[in-house]
Amino acid sequence: MSKNTNAGKPAAARLPSGVANIGTLDLVSATLERLDTRRSGLPGMAVLYGPAGWGKTFATNVLAIESRAYYVQMRSAWRSKTLLEKILFEMGVKHSRATVPDLLDMVCEQLSTSRRTLILDEFDYATRSDNLIELARDIYEGSQGSLLLVGEELLPKKLERWERFHSRVLTWAPAQRVTVSDAAQLAPIYAPGLSIAEDVLVRLVELSNGSVRRVSVNLTQLHEHCLTYGAEACTMAEFDQVAIYTGRSPDRRA
């Protein structure tokens, strides 16, 4: 297998400006490297899974750019031909009036030749169809390339239905809960120029239920509140005045 030329470099040093090096980024980076440097004969698929809002799509998008992986986010209405066409579009491969077998051969050839990883996000949609699962396996078998499949927390359990597919997974990577360290790195992005007390960050993480998205949304809420009232720092006194998003629906007002 080809090797990632960025292997061994600190993840943060490779990230674009304005991107926080949260824990799930490091996890995805390590997973892609493991796929890229696996020994001959080992399976070439990995599964990244976790609850919504835990930074899976963000991390795979960022690292797809950094590693030059092909990234495709699946949709509920897609069938085999649409998926293959979307993958070829991402690959920059032109096709015209091709049959599904022809499209599959083109995807496999490009994946094998380029030695680049194919990332399929929202892969839970594929588990609704035997055809899509078998298609993903065909892509892997036909290219002997690397596939990173991304989905919700029950994705590993769902894939148990297809033993021939399940047994080809090299690594199962659970997305990481957001940490106080993650929150501190997100703060300059979502609350620029605002000094945020550590106990506020701790409380934000406690209320997030693991979600990077909720922390980001709440940092924006705090930033807007402090701008409105002219506060240069966010303490617990300011925090207590802001409606924090926890994932629960708002209470009905009379």
Rank of each mutant, 00 (worst) to 15 (best):
E232N: 09
A69D: 08
L63S: 03
A197Q: 15
S195I: 13
R248T: 09
E153S: 02
E160P: 04
T57K: 01
V100R: 10
R115K: 15
K56I: 00
L159I: 04
E198I: 13
N21T: 09
F123Y: 11
P101C: 12
L84G: 06
L42R: 12
T117Q: 03
N4M: 07
G230W: 04
M1Q: 05
A11Y: 07
N131T: 09
R68L: 15
V212R: 02
Q176W: 06
W172D: 10
F123M: 02
L147G: 04
R14L: 15
R38T: 12
T235L: 00
E160M: 14
V28Y: 08
K86A: 14
A197S: 14
L201G: 10
V169Q: 14
V47C: 15
E134T: 06
A183G: 11
L159D: 07
V169W: 13
L120T: 00
G50H: 08
T99K: 10
R128M: 10
E122T: 05
E163F: 07
V215A: 00
G151R: 02
L227D: 06
I189C: 09
V180I: 15
E198D: 15
V200F: 06
P192L: 10
I87G: 01
N218K: 01
V100G: 05
A13G: 07
S67M: 14
A20C: 07
E152K: 03
E85A: 11
V212C: 12
A13S: 15
A59M: 01
H223C: 05
Q144G: 05
S67H: 15
A30W: 08
R161A: 14
P188E: 11
S208F: 02
G23K: 04
G44A: 13
S96H: 13
D138F: 07
H223R: 06
M106E: 09
E134Q: 09
R14P: 02
W162L: 08
L83P: 01
E134K: 08
G230M: 03
R164N: 14
I87L: 04
L63T: 03
F89D: 11
D36M: 09
M236N: 09
S76L: 14
V202Q: 15
A197V: 05
Q185R: 14
P51N: 12
T179H: 13
I244V: 13
L48H: 12
F239H: 11
A7M: 05
M1F: 05
K56P: 00
S112P: 00
P156V: 04
M91F: 07
G151W: 05
K3H: 11
Y71Q: 11
R14Y: 01
G55E: 01
A233D: 01
L148C: 01
R164L: 09
